[in-house]
Amino acid sequence: MRHRLGFAGKKLIRMALLLLGTSLAAFLLMAASPLDPLQTNIGQAALGSMTREQVDRLEEYWGTDTPPMERYLGWLGSALKGDFGTSLLYRRPVMEVIGQRLGSSLWLLLTAWTLSGALGFVLGLAAGANRGRWPDKLVRGCCLVLSSAPVFWLALLLLMVFSVWLKVLPIGLAVPIGAEAASVTLAQRLRHALLPALALSISGIAGIALHTREKTADEMERDYILYARAMGERHILLRHVVRNVALPAITLQFASIGEIVGGSVLVEQVFSYPGLGQAAVSAGLGGDMPLLLGIAVVTAALVFGGNLTADLLYGAIDPRIRREAAKR
């Protein structure tokens, strides 16, 4: 028990440090950005025609007149109290914006995450079990092509094929254009999320499949597989290999949350999908510091949560760790 508390304590400290570092890095990058929030959001011409007084008020609103460190510490102070400020672009509390955006992104992220994990695992297993033969060559070839193709390019390709040529799926957005929010059905939402989710999953499959293939091929060479064959066991792949490959695969799956979240920024941009990734892009380009910092902190926490889950699951699944821990 004491051991577990120590483990949790260490992880919490690490998480606090990570979030602090992420927010600081995001802030410094934004502060060093050559984008002037006033010019970007109001426009050069409009800015030129304003009185000094008006400009001063705008500068105060965007915070460009305060020294950077003071701004960061101010943000940090209220963030620690749970107040992440108000988004300058959306004029609503940051957490509210993030909550809403995350809500629509979550569909996308979850679908892509499950799909890429499941498909990647199965493909990797099939390739590794048939090392050197055609299933392996096929899977490996596809994965190498996929992992070298940039995700936004894949997204554009899918868009061209399914939306422009075949006209079977919508070209973008999360709901039909012009529809009232209340009248949107679940089917419509799913139809809109399909292509972005597909693009996002395809890019994630390659990594998981290649990794699983490698691990499976290693396991297939182990003595216990030969022994199982020698003793006439059937379903060796399902009985033994899956069991031994699943552990690293689960770790990888949870660690891949970061990649999926990162990929969603590009994919949402291509599909004009109003999710967290798109909000991050507009916050970055529009100089919306509170929103950007909020998004940075939330996504970092998500990724950290994923890795933490992987660690905890490892201990729960692997009998070697589980039984050792039980002894203490």
């Binding site: 003595d223 216990y224 030969l226 020698a230 006439g232 033994h240």
Partner: peptide
């Protein structure tokens, strides 16, 4: 293939021949 594990059996080297993840 039909006989192994029943009439013809193997006693291998050691614990490395057991699946580490199975009871």
């Amino acid at each position: 293939a039909a006989l192994r594990g029943r009439e013809i059996v193997l006693v291998p080297q050691g614990a490395g021949c057991l699946d580490p993840m199975m009871q």
